[in-house]
Design a protein around this nucleic acid. Structure first.
Lengths: 159, 159
DNA sequence: GTCGGTCCTTCACAGCGGCGAAACAATCGT
DNA sequence: ACGATTGTTTCGCCGCTGTGAAGGACCGAC
C-alpha cells in the first residue's frame, strides 16, 4: 500500500525488493505505469471493496511468484530459477541435490561429501573447492551458499 | 474491452484464448477476481485517461507473453518464428523436431542422433557438425542452441 | 589482547575428455 | 552441371576435476 507520488522513494524500494504493492493515486494525478504483474493501482477516492479486490488479486500473484522462487533442479543438471538457468556439472549437481533437499537449512560437510562422492572422498580439500565453484555458478541466479562454521553449509536466496 | 457481467460468455472465450482484456465493471457490481496478469478491470464511471493507462499496461504484458512464443515447424521443413522463417534440410529438420518437442529442456546427444539418423549413426562427429550448421541457420530467428556439457543440447530464445 | 590452531576460502596448475569449427570430399537434387 | 546437402578428418579450445599451497576468518586458551 503506497501513496503516490508522496511515497515515491518507498515505492522504488518495494519495487526493487520484488514485493507486491498497491499504489494509491489521488485525483488528477497520472498513475505510474509498469508492466510488473505485482503492481496495481487505484484511483482515489475508492471503495474499501474495490481496494480489497485488488489487494486479494495481488496476494494471489505474490503467492504464485513465491512458489516460482524456489529453485528447481532436473535430472540433467539444469538448475532453474526465475526464468534463468545454469547447468551444473556432475559433482556440483549432486551437491546441489542435498542442498535443495534441505533448502534454507544447514547441511553438514559430511553429508555433502557423501552426496558428492559416494565412492569415497578423493582429497580433504575437494569439497571446499567445489563449494567455491558452485557459489560462482549460483551468483547470477541470486542464490547464495552461506557458511555455518564447523557445522556445514546452507543454501538460500541472496539477501 | 469487455462489459461485466453483461458479456460474461465473451469474457470466458477471451480468457481461454489467453488474450489480454480489460473488464468494465458498473457501479455496485463486484469485479471478477483472477490472478491472471493479462486481465484487469476498472470501476465505471472512469476517465479515458485511466482506461488508457490500464490498456497500455495490458498491452505491455501481452507483448511480453508473445515473445515467449514457441517456434513452429511444419512437415516441409519450414521453421517459423515471429513473421520470419527459414527452411531446414532433412537431417536438420529431424533434429529440430526433437529440440522443439523438448523446447527449453535438455535433449541428449543420443536422442538427437536417433532422431537424425534412424538407420544408425554414420560417424561419431556428424552430430556436432550438424549442430553447428543448425545454429547458423537459427541465428536470424533469434533462436539459440545451448550446450549442456556431457548431457546434450537445449533450444531456447536468444538472451 | 594475543597467540596458536582449526576451519574455511581462494588461486594456480595439470590431466582428461567433450565439444567447436574449418576444410575437404562425396553425394543428392534439379 | 551446379549448388545444396551430407559425411569425414583434423586441430585446438575450453570445461570439469582433483591437488597443493597460501592466506584469511574465527575461536578458545592463556
Amino acid at each position: 500500500m503506497v501513496r503516490w507520488p508522496a511515497e515515491e522513494s518507498r515505492l522504488a524500494e518495494i519495487r526493487t525488493a520484488g514485493q507486491a504493492r498497491l499504489v494509491l493515486v489521488p485525483e488528477g494525478v497520472a498513475p505510474p505505469l509498469t508492466s510488473d504483474p505485482l503492481e496495481d493501482w487505484v484511483r482515489l477516492p475508492a471503495s474499501d471493496e474495490d481496494v480489497r479486490a485488488r489487494v486479494r488479486v495481488l496476494e494471489d500473484r505474490a503467492r504464485g511468484a513465491e512458489e516460482a522462487n524456489i529453485p528447481e533442479l532436473d535430472e540433467n543438471g539444469l538448475l532453474r530459477l526465475g526464468g534463468q538457468w545454469v547447468s551444473l556439472p556432475p559433482v556440483e549437481h549432486r551437491l546441489m541435490g542435498v542442498l535443495l533437499d534441505r533448502y534454507r537449512a544447514v547441511v553438514s560437510r559430511d553429508a555433502l561429501a557423501r552426496a558428492g562422492w559416494p565412492e569415497g572422498i578423493p582429497g580433504r580439500n575437494v569439497l571446499d573447492v567445489h563449494i567455491v565453484r558452485l557459489r560462482r555458478r549460483l551468483e547470477p541466479l541470486g542464490l547464495v551458499i552461506r557458511t555455518v562454521r564447523s557445522r556445514g553449509y546452507l543454501l538460500e536466496a541472496a539477501s
